[in-house]
Each structure stands twice: as C-alpha cells, then as structure tokens.
C-alpha cells in the first residue's frame, strides 16, 4: 500500500464512521417503535435522569429539602404515610419521599462513577493486552479470568471493608471488581480491529504505536464497551445498594437507598413504609436500565440474547 492510498483509506474511514452512526440512530428509532418495553425503559431512565438533574441544580424545590441531611423532627417520628408525607417519615421524623427522590441523584451518579472507573481500567488492560499480544496478553488475560472466577460482589465487600465505610470507598471497591468484563470486550474488539486496513494505513503513514492505539484502535474498540457499560448502570446501582444495605456503602445521614433500607430494617414490621419505598425506587431504576438494555442488546448483537451478566444481592 502506498502513502496516497493509505491516506485515501483514512478519509474513507471517517466517512464510513458517520454513515454507521446514522444507521445506528435509525435502527434505534425503529426499535423504539416496535418494542414498547424498550420505550418504557427509556421513559423510566429519562425521568430518573431529570430528577437527578433537578436534585443537583435545585434541591430546594424538593418537598422538605432540610430532610436530605440529618434534620430531626421529634413530632414526626415514624409518622405513617399521610397527605403531607405520602411515603411517611423515618426514625428521625424526616420525609421519606424527599429522601427517596434525593437518593436518585446519589445512586445514578455513584453508579455512573463505578461504571466509568471500571470501564477506564478495563479499557486500558484490554487495549494493552490486545495490541501488544504475546506474553503480556497471556498474563493480563489470566489475571482477568481469575478475577472473573471470583464472585465480584464478595470481592467488592472485602475491598470496601478494607477501605472503610463511605460511598466513595464503595464506588472504588465495585470499580475494582467491575473491569474484567470490559477488559475482555475491549481486547476482542482490539484484536478484530488491529489488522484492519486503516490501522495498516496509519502504520504506513508512520504513526507511533501509542498514537495508533489511542487514535485508531480505541475509538473502534470502545463502542461496544461503552454501550455495555451504559446498560450495566442498573447492576452497578443494585450492587451499590447492596453494599449500602450491608453498611459498607454510604453512611447516614446520606439518603442512599440501600443504606435507608438498612436503617429502616430495625423498625420492621410496624414502620414498613421506611423500607418499602427506597426498595421500590431501586427496583424501578434497575428495571429501567434492564428494559432498555434488553432491547438494545437484542438490536445490536444477537449474541447477548444468551448469557446476561447480572450482579445481585
């Protein structure tokens, strides 16, 4: 291949990318039209995202913004659902509805962070393993497989316990156990792309390895991993809530759903509302991502119809 033809390949590539993007968008619209479940998922996720956004920029419009923290209202202790407090009040007399709504922001952000960190680590390892190959690939993949042979949430538990209580520590703990899937995915994509014409073209044009890796391979290898990571958000939220429930996640008074249930458990069965509503919100959020993910996976890759990868407590 000559320099000129190499250049042509590169040009054609960027055009092909745009075409592909357009086609994928069209596919997505067709899918939404055909699958009401996917649409329902999209609506749930959209609504929760808007709620999280509102909680970020204007938390004061929540019914009882002071109840987000550790305010106490002795006269409202364990008050059952009423028109003023539709979800009732908790053991400090705080409005459960306010806390549950605010919990959306915490869970969505924290889940996104877990996935983002896991994705970064996994991409780095997968990219290096796939591109360098040889013994580096062997060693990295054996380690990845070993991590996959350990139940992830249990490992996360150990890491969280070491780092100590706190939301950020729980996020780190989960991210450390979250990367192997992405590493495998990115590696296989890297292997597929590595010998493509345009990578060859870039090499002929004298690009350095690191540039080829970041500029030419990464964008192509990252796509599937990003889609997967987005759809894994539901499971990240679920795992975080589980850690919170075990006292290894967010600490009081942070209104994290799992931690709220953990606290409310002490007042069962009489004060059922304190545990019920945060749980319903977890269910709703995870269901939203799963519905969306199910539809998208069906559309994008029939392979995913088989094993679904789920973390749950």
């Amino acid at each position: 291949m000559t320099y000129a033809s190499a250049k042509l390949v590169m040009k054609e590539l960027s055009r092909a990318r745009i075409r592909k993007l357009k086609m994928e968008l069209r596919y997505a619209l067709i899918l939404l039209k055909r699958s009401p479940l996917t649409l329902a998922g999209l609506i749930i996720i959209g609504t929760l995202s808007v709620i999280a956004l509102i909680c970020t920029i204007a938390p004061q419009i929540l019914p009882y913004p002071e109840d987000i923290g550790s305010a106490t209202h002795p006269e409202l202790l364990h008050c059952p659902p009423s028109p003023e407090h539709p979800f009732g009040c908790d053991y400090l007399g705080r409005d459960v509805l306010t806390r549950v709504i605010y919990g959306t922001k915490i869970s969505l952000y924290a889940g996104a962070l877990v996935v983002l960190l896991g994705l970064s680590l996994g991409t780095l390892i997968g990219l290096i393993a796939g591109y360098v190959g040889g013994i580096v690939d062997d060693v990295l993949m054996r380690i990845t497989d070993a991590f996959l042979s350990i139940p992830g949430l249990v490992l996360a538990l150990a890491i969280a316990a070491t780092l100590g209580r706190g939301l950020m520590n729980a996020i780190i703990a989960l991210a450390v156990t979250w990367w192997p899937w992405y590493a495998r995915l990115v590696r296989s994509c890297t292997l597929a792309v590595k010998n493509e014409l345009f990578v060859l073209a870039a090499r002929i044009m004298g690009a350095r390895s690191i540039v080829i890796m970041l500029k030419h391979i990464l964008p192509n290898a990252l796509g599937p991993a990003i889609i997967n990571a987005t759809l894994d958000l539901g499971f990240a939220i679920l795992a975080l809530a589980s850690l919170g429930f075990l006292g290894l996640g967010a600490t009081p008074p942070t209104p994290e759903w799992g931690a709220m249930i953990s606290e409310a458990r002490k007042y069962l069965p009489n004060m059922w509302w304190e545990a019920t509503f945060p749980g319903l919100m977890i269910f709703l959020a995870v269901l939203g991502f799963n519905l969306l993910g199910d539809g998208l996976r069906d559309l994008l890759d029939p392979k995913f119809r088989r094993g679904a990868r789920v973390w749950r407590i």
Partner: peptide
C-alpha cells in the same frame, strides 16, 4: 423475568418477610 432480575434481593427478602 426482567422484573425478577431488577429486584434487589435484600428488599425482596424483607418484603416477603413482611
């Protein structure tokens, strides 16, 4: 089955107990 995967086990356990 989609709902079953989304249910937090700890919450389901509490609700069943309740």
């Amino acid at each position: 089955s989609l709902a079953g995967v989304a249910l937090p086990t700890f919450w389901l356990a509490i609700m069943m107990q309740l």
